[in-house]
Simulated scan of single mutants.
Amino acid sequence: MENEAAVAALAALAFETRLQAVQLLATVGDDGLAAGELSRRLGVQQNTLSDHLASLARAGIVKADRQGRSIIYRANPQAVRDLVLFLSERLGANARAA
């Protein structure tokens, strides 16, 4: 992971609603949830949630797939693992240098 991708992922996760959406999507697994169902479960207006989901998708934290008239969102666990690894490697290198 490059610095730019890490910054985008961290920025995308820096909103409580976005973090809650990722947590919810992680709990439902590969089935994912339609945007409307996510909106209902999180208690967030659908147009507001749409902006949040778009940011998460641009950062690669969630994946969006069109199924008919719905967009199904799924968490992307690999993107989160990559971010954690990126941070761990840099923090580990700084700790060893100190």
Rank of each mutant, 00 (worst) to 15 (best):
D51P: 04
A14C: 10
N94L: 14
A6M: 06
G60L: 04
T17M: 07
R40G: 07
L42T: 04
R69M: 14
P77Y: 11
L24T: 10
L24Q: 06
E16Q: 10
V62S: 00
A5G: 04
I71G: 01
Q20P: 01
L85P: 01
D31F: 11
R90H: 11
A35H: 09
Q20K: 15
E2C: 08
A95Q: 10
S50P: 01
G60E: 03
A97R: 14
V62H: 00
A9D: 01
A5C: 06
A97E: 13
A64V: 08
A12R: 00
L33N: 03
A35Y: 02
L42Q: 02
A79Q: 05
A21T: 02
A93G: 08
L53N: 00
D65L: 13
I72G: 01
F86A: 04
A21D: 00
G43P: 01
T17N: 12
L19H: 06
A21S: 09
T17E: 14
R58T: 11
G92A: 07
S39V: 00
D51Q: 15
G92C: 06
G36V: 11
L91Y: 08
A64Y: 03
A95R: 12
L85N: 14
G68N: 06
R18K: 09
S55Y: 10
A98Q: 11
Q23S: 13
V22D: 00
A95M: 12
A57V: 09
S39Q: 02
D31K: 15
Q45K: 15
A5V: 13
Y73E: 02
E4R: 13
A35T: 12
E37K: 10
K63H: 13
L10P: 03
L87N: 03
A95I: 15
N47R: 15
F86R: 01
A21G: 04
L49A: 02
T27D: 13
G29Q: 10
T48G: 07
A98K: 11
R40T: 12
S70R: 09
R66W: 06
D30A: 14
N47H: 14
R41C: 09
V62F: 00
G43V: 05
L56G: 01
A35K: 11
A64Q: 10
G29V: 09
L25E: 01
L19K: 08
L42D: 03
L10F: 08
R90W: 05
T27R: 14
G36R: 15
A35Q: 14
V28H: 04
A26I: 08
E89N: 10
R69Q: 14
M1D: 06
Q20S: 13
L49S: 03
E37G: 03
A57T: 15
D65H: 11
G68F: 06
L53I: 00
R74Q: 13
R90P: 02
A8M: 12
V80Y: 05
E16S: 12
A35M: 15
I71R: 06
F15P: 00
T48C: 07
G60W: 02
A12F: 03
I61C: 01
R58G: 09
E16W: 07
L24N: 03
I72Y: 01
A57M: 06
V28R: 03
Q67T: 07
V84A: 15
V62Y: 02
A35E: 11
G68Q: 06
P77L: 09
H52V: 05
R81Y: 13
R66I: 07
R18Y: 02
A6S: 07
E37L: 10
D51W: 12
E37R: 09
L19V: 08
A79N: 02
F86S: 04
S70K: 11
L91F: 11
L87Y: 05
